[in-house]
């Protein structure tokens, strides 16, 4: 597999994963390892004053694994900037999944606030991977704002609907000078392979692995599909045609 470069890091795996929704920390760690992922998202929360704080971070002590803190829960650029600074302090990384989604029903990202936050955080030395709509114009603006990759959505977070934004993802991939990571809505390995075949540089998958009956096995299935999709893209896919084109000779050898 060819190497993916984002900012100062190199990745052998083009499958990024999340840590949400797993039944246990052990299961989470096993699934991440089986997926081969080298970048996992984590969120922030207020600590429990009664001491009921889990040790999930200890389970992410996996060789070669990098943390990507997110800003989930913030409603605007100002809150996102503060959350980013807290994340950097807590986790010792300047990598950030910038996500601002004030609407709880569809969790759709606020592009305007994301762009504003990106400008500020880039000046502060963050490596920013913004979660956004599959909006080709916004992606170019984020490039100018100092993002290190763009993360357009396939469909709303956790819906498993796949690439309903497919045609816009194609435009983003065609135009982007930054790595394109398709995030959100990828519900099955075939969706992941589809994104990779389109030419996405990576995908981010959480729910589909975490809620599987067997997350470890599903992690492996996604690993294989991402690799297959990437290799297929690099190999050059055959053209789609409206009419049949024979693969076998059409000579009438029986008469």
């Amino acid at each position: 597999m060819d190497i993916l470069r984002i900012a100062d890091k190199e990745f052998k795996s083009r499958l990024f994963t999340g840590t949400g929704k797993f039944n246990s920390n052990e299961m989470m760690a096993e699934a991440i390892q089986a997926s081969g992922s080298e970048l996992v998202t984590v969120a922030l929360k207020r600590v429990d004053m009664k001491g009921n704080n889990d040790d999930m971070i200890d389970h992410l002590n996996i060789p070669g694994l990098n943390l990507l803190p997110n800003t989930s829960g913030v409603r605007n650029a100002k809150e996102a900037i503060f959350a980013a600074q807290l994340a950097r302090e807590a986790l010792g990384t300047n990598w950030l999944k910038l996500e601002i989604h004030p609407d709880p029903k569809y969790l759709l990202p606020d592009g305007e606030e994301t762009l504003k936050a990106c400008y500020e955080l880039a000046k502060d030395g963050f490596v920013i991977l913004p979660y956004i709509h599959a909006d080709p114009v916004l992606c170019k603006k984020l490039e100018d704002a100092g993002a290190s990759a763009v993360m357009p959505l396939g469909s709303p977070i956790g819906t498993n609907q796949g690439l309903i934004t497919r045609d816009f993802l194609k435009i983003i991939i065609e135009q982007s000078n930054l790595p394109v990571v398709v995030d959100a809505g990828i519900g099955s390995p075939s969706h992941a392979a589809e994104a990779m075949e389109l030419g996405a540089d990576a995908v981010l998958v959480n729910t589909a692995i975490a809620v599987a009956k067997n997350p470890k096995q599903m992690g492996r299935a996604f690993k294989m599909s991402v690799e297959a999709g990437r290799i297929a893209y690099l190999s050059g896919l055959a053209k789609v045609s409206a009419y049949a084109e024979a693969s076998s000779p059409l000579t009438s050898f029986l008469s």
Binding site: G20, V47, I57, G158
Partner: peptide, 29 residues
């Protein structure tokens, strides 16, 4: 609303009415 770096935790004295925010990492996508 001002972050206090960990190396300064031992030298930071709290004052009346301080609003302290303590966050940690948790699971998320």
């Amino acid at each position: 609303e001002r972050i206090v770096m960990q190396k300064k935790w031992k030298s930071t004295i709290l004052s009346e009415n301080d609003k302290i925010l303590i966050i940690s990492a948790t699971k998320g996508g």
